[in-house]
Structures are given as C-alpha cells and as structure tokens.
C-alpha cells in the first residue's frame, strides 16, 4: 500500500481544529465550573492569551536534555493518540493514520505522556516535581487498569483490535453503540475516564495554583506553553478514543463537537460535585469500584 502524501496536510488540519476546539472547550468547561461556584470565570479566549504570554516570555532556563524532552514527549502523547484513531468516521480527510495503528498503540500513547513528563520533571530536580510524579504515575496506573480491561472486553466483543472496524460495527442506530451492547465495559471505562482527565476529584496530581503543583513546578515560558497545548489536545484525543469505542464515533464535525462536549461534561459534572481525593484514596477507589467492573466485562465477553 502506497502512502498518500495528502494525508499529512489533512492530519495537520485535524490537529489544528482539535487544538483550537480543545482550547475553547477547556475554557468553556472552566467557565461552567466557575458558574457552579457563582463566579464568572475566565474569558473563553483566556487560554490563547496565556499561551501567547508564555511563548512571549523572554528568559528561560533548562535543567538538562530531559527537561526539554519532557513537554515534547507529553505533546507527542497527545498528538500521537489523535493521529492513530479516526477522528471522523468514514471521512477520508480526517481518518488520519488510523490504518496503521490499532487499539494497543492507542493505549501506549495514553500512557506515553505521563512517562515523558516523569522523566522531564525528574530532571528538574525540584522535590515537589518528584512528589507530583510519584502521585501522578501511581494514579494514572490505577486509572489505566479498568480502561485497559474495558478495551479488551470491547475488542473481544467485536473480535478486532482496529478502531475503525469497532466504529463501523456500531453504526446504524443508537442501540448499536457499545454503551448499550456492553454497558459494563463502558461503565468501567467511564470511571477510568474520570481519573485520567485531571479534574476533581482526581486532580491532586496537578492541582494548579497550589503549593504542590506537581510535575510542572519548574516548567515555565515555552516549556509550559507546550504543555498547555497538550493540555488542550490530550483530553480531546482521549475523548475521541472513548467516542469511537463506546459512543458510536462521529461521522461529521458537528456530531464530533457535540459528543466530545458531552463526554467532557461528564467529568466536569463529577468534578464540581465531589471534593478532591488524596492519591491513596483514589487508587483504592479505582481498585474497588472500577477494576471489578472491568473484570466482569471481560468475563462476560
């Protein structure tokens, strides 16, 4: 099979749309959370301003090679995840590289960012970074477990590891979605979703504006801007996977925007209702509630 070069501008276009949607969506979600607290919250364009400002800072220092590579790895995790799943089902333009990768690759990419971050933050030598990395890795690992189980349950259900085929199998009506054909796996995956979105009650790893800000303690200017970009892309990419696996995928951009918004909203609603877990509490929570669901899903399948 020959590589079609036109895929590269298409992929960049996808990335552009998703990044901008991510910036706006995170701001809108912050605004929703603020409205719950009866605040006005940040303007929707605030993320762009922060980004420009961080790129515009004049001085920056480095703590070594891995310090540079940390944010790059993190961004790679987000972009890679996005590239290897079909963003829009059935569209030649926005299916990107999904022919080349399957679910296992996507699972790797979900984890990749955290690992890169751990290496980079470790290099900065700040004690808070080390604490944050420890917390982050343990929580992500615990949250990843039910997701992996759910993904395998789905893979067994459809007898394929290709995301495109899984989406194809869900077409033709809402009742064909995995949400209804395999609800237990979806439940396990959604619990894991809460944990990996870095929102309350699972945001102790990356509590912004607090003393233990975690891994990015030493990151500033362009490094931080790179990580902010990833903070916009990565949740969307992750939601795209969820959408494709469990919620029937999206056949057009409006459907895509709507579904991503709604799935994101789940974690925001949970976040504004529940207070924050400590790391050991959240790990226990995942092991007690989410992992058994995943196991049941696999056993049934």
């Amino acid at each position: 099979m020959s590589f079609e070069w036109i895929k590269i501008p298409y992929a960049l276009l996808t990335l552009f749309i998703v990044a901008n949607y991510g910036f706006l969506l995170t701001a809108v979600m912050a605004k929703i959370a603020a409205r719950v607290g009866r605040r006005h919250g940040i303007p929707v364009w605030q993320n762009y301003l922060d980004l420009i400002k961080n790129y515009g800072l004049r001085s920056s220092i480095t703590h070594g090679v891995m310090f540079y590579l940390g944010p790059v790895f993190r961004l790679t995790g987000g972009v890679g995840l996005l590239m290897f799943v079909p963003t829009i089902y059935g569209s030649v333009m926005f299916s990107n590289m999904s022919f080349a990768g399957d679910l296992i690759l996507a699972l790797y990419f979900v984890f990749f960012g955290s690992l890169g971050m751990a290496l980079g933050a470790g290099e900065s030598g700040h004690p808070y970074s080390a604490i944050g990395v420890t917390r982050g890795l343990s929580q992500v690992t615990a949250a990843e477990l039910p997701f992996a189980l759910a993904v395998y349950a789905v893979a067994v259900q459809y007898q394929t590891l290709s995301v495109t085929e899984i989406v194809a199998a869900q077409q033709g009506g809402i009742l064909n979605w995995t949400l209804f054909t395999n609800p237990i796996a979806v439940a396990a995956a959604m619990l894991s979703f809460l944990g990996s979105m870095m929102r309350p009650p699972f945001d102790v790893v990356l509590a912004p504006q607090e003393i233990p800000i975690g891994p990015p303690t030493e990151y500033h200017s362009s490094y931080l801007a790179l990580m902010q970009t990833n903070r916009a892309i990565f949740p969307i990419a992750k939601i795209v996977i969820y959408m494709n696996l469990f919620f029937g995928g999206a056949a057009s951009w409006p459907v895509f925007f709507l579904k991503v918004f709604l799935i994101y909203l789940v974690s925001v609603i949970v976040g504004v209702v529940f207070p924050r877990f400590r790391v050991e509490q959240s790990i226990r929570w995942f092991l007690i509630w989410a992992v058994p669901l995943g196991v049941i899903a696999i056993v049934i399948a």
């Binding site: 605040r39 006005h40 800000i213 990151y219």
Partner: peptide, 22 residues
C-alpha cells in the same frame, strides 16, 4: 478569588511557583 470579586475574569490567576508567575 471568591465569587464576589472573581479576579479570574480579568485574566488574573495565582500560581504556586515563581517560575510560572509574572
């Protein structure tokens, strides 16, 4: 930071580390 004054709407945030604040 509270609902009454809500400085966030003016683009003001608090950061815990000097590296990220201006």
């Amino acid at each position: 930071m509270t609902p009454r004054f809500d400085a966030y709407r003016y683009g003001i945030q608090w950061r815990p580390t000097p590296r990220q604040s201006n």
